[in-house]
Nucleic acid binder design. Structure first.
Lengths: 240, 240
DNA sequence: TGTACATCAGTGAACGCGCGTTCACTGATGTAC
DNA sequence: TGTACATCAGTGAACGCGCGTTCACTGATGTAC
């Protein structure tokens, strides 16, 4: 990718077939993921479902780890797309609504695709290390969106920061916040940013407990209401 | 277990050897877990480490799933013991301190035993269903401890409930809360209980992000301080 | 206390399985002249 | 437009591996009389 768009030509039939086959592999990989889990993801099984001999998939995918990487990126982007769509459907000044939309979008996607959610936010896959240069972009879309909501709300004066101004972060933590703010070009102050981190982890904590079955079979019957309530409280935590 | 303690006799040498071997199996299983993950947990590997032929472990463990169950129970109890010890070391009236001690105990254990933590709170192991009648007890120790802190604080008038009294939970959610309160014999009101659920999931959400590597390599250098801060904010959420 | 029998721990071979990956190959599709 | 060659997709056999689980067995440890 040194010289961008080397080819503007329309793709040849062969190229189109190749693209379609790769897409098929990713789709079948996701189905396999859903049934057997990431640790049991197998190139041979994907080849079988694809109706092809096992060695043939090596034309498209270097090895098992690369298939995992493709699935990771695919899932991150699907989640990112849904979150973006949900948030962007709301008026630019409705920050609280955007926050809730983000949380709900993540939750709905997670409940619909529990295996992909587990791949992204569950236990690490043993022996697999995601290649940062390919996954960091897609993998940070949700948190960047969340941060951008907080920041826009702050700039608009819509963050009713209930944080007591006397509250000072410990120096090392404040340093982290400064770095984040600088790197992302944010205006939101340290204390709110730190609370934003808690809100971020809390949203995913609530979703993980539900998706991973930590709530037990029937302790919580009103899961939609519970999550809505949790979002509401978290809203208050950052003063949205 | 129909007629309890059928034997009060001291254990025979054979029985002691058996108990020790089972303990060895669990210990080796945990090591294996740490290195290869739950999905790759293998009876054959445990047998190898035990210095015994693979079929021999079937004398002690019915099958692979039962070994997983043993590991699950063992981990839940180790975590439960550490949490209890940390909380009980504090004065009975120091509810906020107890809450922080609980959170810190969970986090320390999780960082020390990431594989066991992943087994308990990460992605479900595909194809494995924990037998509720054996795991529910150990598996609910931490949440019961947390709830007991909240309840004791409320009874002592130490819950400075910042919850606006006007806030009414949606009926279905309120029903869940009533059931929980009745079942556990609690005094703490609905709204605080619901906030307690958020605090519970949030503590584990923060820990999971750290243990599972969601924070990225160096965005957060001050992880102790970050978690302490998160506990502090969550304390405020329930009014502790 | 001594013998006869039952219980148990561990062996070793075998079953059938699925996995990742390599390699030499066939045949079809594309490209250059 | 027609031929000669290069590229690519997919085949099929093979490698070496580890897995869960069963089964008939040997030998040591315990128990009953």
């Amino acid at each position: 990718m040194t010289s961008a768009e080397t080819k503007a030509k329309p793709p040849t039939p062969r190229e189109r077939a190749r693209t379609r086959t790769i897409a098929d592999i990713v789709r079948l990989g996701r189905e396999h993921l859903a049934v057997h889990g990431a640790a049991a993801l197998s190139l041979r099984a994907v080849a079988r479902d694809l109706g092809v001999v096992s060695s043939a998939v090596y034309r498209y995918v270097e090895n098992r780890d690369e298939l995992l990487t493709l699935l990771l990126i695919d899932a991150y982007n699907e989640l990112g797309d849904e979150v973006d769509a949900a948030v962007d459907a709301l008026p630019a000044e409705d920050f609280a609504g955007q926050f809730r939309a983000l949380g709900n979008a993540v939750r709905w996607w997670a409940l619909r695709e529990p295996a992909s959610y587990a791949l992204l936010f569950g236990s690490p896959v043993p022996g697999y290390q995601a290649p940062g240069e390919r996954t960091t972009g897609p993998g940070t879309r949700v948190i960047l969106k969340l941060v951008s909501i907080f920041d826009a709300a702050y700039r608009a004066g819509a963050l009713t920061a209930e944080v007591p101004p006397a509250v000072v972060l410990p120096p090392k933590l404040a340093e982290d916040m400064v770095n984040i703010r600088t790197q992302l070009g944010l205006a939101v102050p340290d204390a709110s940013l730190a609370r934003g981190v808690l809100v971020w982890t809390s949203v995913f904590g609530a979703i993980s407990f539900e998706v991973f079955g930590q709530y037990g079979a029937d302790t919580f019957a009103a899961r939609d209401e519970l999550f809505a309530h949790q979002l509401g409280v978290l809203q208050g935590v950052v003063g949205l």
